[in-house]
């Protein structure tokens, strides 16, 4: 097996697994940059995956080939609505962010499975007919060398995720809105003094994270699992959280980390078909993202610091 062949297997597979992680990690960034810790990313992905699959199954007659894309939008919307629970609990009711996030994860699984049983009277959904399929991207796939590696046998969603990451970087670091968002996460009192509505910014941050988390879940469900059950989302949300930290709360850094984690995940699945990886136990690849994140936090791989006011409540008038 030549080196090119290996790249042609590994890179599309890496991007496939990375796409949901990129989107969800970006969601985490919007929430944490505004000052709200969001452990509930996993739950938001569950809701997104559930919504995407159910919407896809129910409306495939109506939307035809566009079904998965419409389902993505609906999943983002439902994810945003669901994240409102986290927003209200943490911002308005001053609940501990981590506790509320844990509850969001439990609630999401409970609600999604409850509804699956209510709608379909069984523990998991049918397999969707129109998911995201492997495609050759027009024109770009004809470029020699780069084309076959990056743009053949790949998925649209991977490129959508990368484009959204670039947009997110622009929003967070190059727009007035992004500056305000970051200021409420670093020093809410200073932001408040400057006339920024801290509560509003934080609500927006959490809602965007809900939309992106829902998007991530729906991408995963429609490109990888193709149905929804209790095991569809099992740890991807936490891996996205890890990507966010590993990428130091920076959209492009998180994207890089998510692609790296996608690489590790895809290797643990396709590793057996690659000659140089046959002897590496899959457990090493499975735990690599988590161990690396711990090392990153510890400072061995460049120190990762959270936004300063992340996880704190802002109570007007208190010092």
């Amino acid at each position: 097996m030549g080196f090119m062949d290996i790249l042609q297997i590994v890179i599309p597979s890496t991007l496939l697994w990375a796409a949901p992680l990129i989107l969800t990690a970006l969601g985490g960034i919007f929430s944490e940059r505004s000052g709200v810790v969001n452990i509930g990313l996993e739950g938001l992905m569950v809701i997104g995956a559930f919504t995407g699959i159910v919407f896809n199954l129910e409306t495939v007659q109506v939307f035809g080939n566009w079904t998965p894309w419409v389902a993505l939008l609906v999943a983002a919307l439902v994810g945003a609505l669901f994240s409102l629970i986290h927003a209200v609990a943490t911002i308005s009711f001053r609940a501990d962010h981590t506790v509320s996030g844990v509850a969001i994860n439990l609630l999401a699984v409970g609600v999604a499975l409850f509804l699956v049983k209510l709608i379909y009277d069984k523990g998991q959904t049918d397999i969707i007919q129109k998911g995201f399929r492997k495609i050759d991207i027009p024109f770009l796939s004809d470029i020699p060398i780069i084309g076959p590696i990056f743009f053949s046998n790949t998925y649209w969603t991977s490129y959508v995720a990368i484009i959204i990451a670039i947009i997110a970087w622009f929003i967070v670091f190059k727009t007035p809105f992004g500056l305000r968002l970051r200021s409420t996460g670093e020093h809410p009192m200073a932001a408040d003094t400057m006339g920024i509505n801290v509560t509003k910014m934080r609500y927006i941050g959490v809602i965007i994270s809900g939309a992106l988390g829902g998007l991530g879940g729906a991408v995963y469900a429609q490109s990888i699992s193709s149905d929804f059950s209790h095991a569809t989302i099992s740890g991807q949300g936490f891996m996205a959280l890890a990507a966010m930290i590993f990428g130091k709360w920076h959209p492009l850094g998180a994207m890089g980390a998510a692609i790296f984690f996608g690489f590790a995940q895809s290797l643990s699945i396709i590793g057996n078909s690659l000659p140089f990886l046959q002897n590496v136990p899959s457990v090493i690849l499975l735990i690599a993202p988590y161990i690396l994140t711990i090392l990153a936090l510890t400072g061995f791989i460049g120190r990762a610091d959270a936004p300063k006011a992340s996880g704190t409540h802002y109570i007007k008038g208190s010092r």
Partner: peptide
Amino acid sequence: PNELVDIIIALIII
């Protein structure tokens, strides 16, 4: 569905 209880437990935490 028994998941109703998971929902209730999550709500209690919130």
